[in-house]
Design a protein around this nucleic acid. Sequence first.
DNA 1: CTTGACCTTCCAGTCACTGTAACCCTTATA
DNA 2: TATAAGGGTTACAGTGACTGGAAGGTCAAG
Lengths: 131, 131
Amino acid sequence: MNIGEAAKLSDLSVKTIRYYEDIALVKPDRLENGYRDYSDADIHCLIFLQRARGLGFSIDECRLLLSLYEDDHRSSRDVKAIAKDKLAEIDRKIDELQALKNTLKTLVKNCHGDDKPDCPIIDNLSGQRTQ
Amino acid sequence: MNIGEAAKLSDLSVKTIRYYEDIALVKPDRLENGYRDYSDADIHCLIFLQRARGLGFSIDECRLLLSLYEDDHRSSRDVKAIAKDKLAEIDRKIDELQALKNTLKTLVKNCHGDDKPDCPIIDNLSGQRTQ
DNA sequence: CTTGACCTTCCAGTCACTGTAACCCTTATA
DNA sequence: TATAAGGGTTACAGTGACTGGAAGGTCAAG
């Protein structure tokens, strides 16, 4: 199967798939004409990557997960540990964004939004802390 | 004032400050020996940038905010519009992360985390949707 | 035989820095 | 006065995870 079809089946772009080969995540065979030839296993691998990336795992984490995916003797403990780490990371990011949101919300609420230059948002950014 | 002190006062790294000059955000004078020389206005500008970046504004948004900051005839309406856009963007990001979190949480909960290879996390990633 | 859709490689660009190397300037101390 | 520490300068490469574009090869249909 060539790269275009692999892209459709995995919901990844052709560019991305080639990039995944560059960084040695997926290693398809080559046909005589130089075209990449994806096996069913390769396709599963790509789908796996698409989903893992969609869940927020980094490429390196995907690499690790992929090796577990391909390892019949894996322990689910190892997989769970990675997922839990990611969960904690997502939690931290949410907290951070929430804090940002609250700050910005207050600033926006206090800003008149009229023709005049007086602006608590600008004041805050300039360090005057007029909040 | 030279760049090291500017870094301390603005809570930015020296590297970052030089980068901000590269992209024409802050234009300090130069001393005879080639050292950058930051005025009070420059320092306020750097502090402004540090805070705006901290609130999640992109460099281009900072550029815009900075021009408003420096414009005595700005209208607070313009500033508020930018902040509201950013707020909406942050909201979208939070929603996205929440969805990720929920998915991952379910997967983690359903995973035994033992020595055996059976793993709903891997199953989900591989497209089996054993959820 | 040509057209168009596919495929190939390689290089540059994105964003917002960060790291490193090689060098120059200033200040304090031996 | 020599020197060493701790500033400062430039320029270039690397980060992550792609994306865009150029220049060209291959294939199937009409």
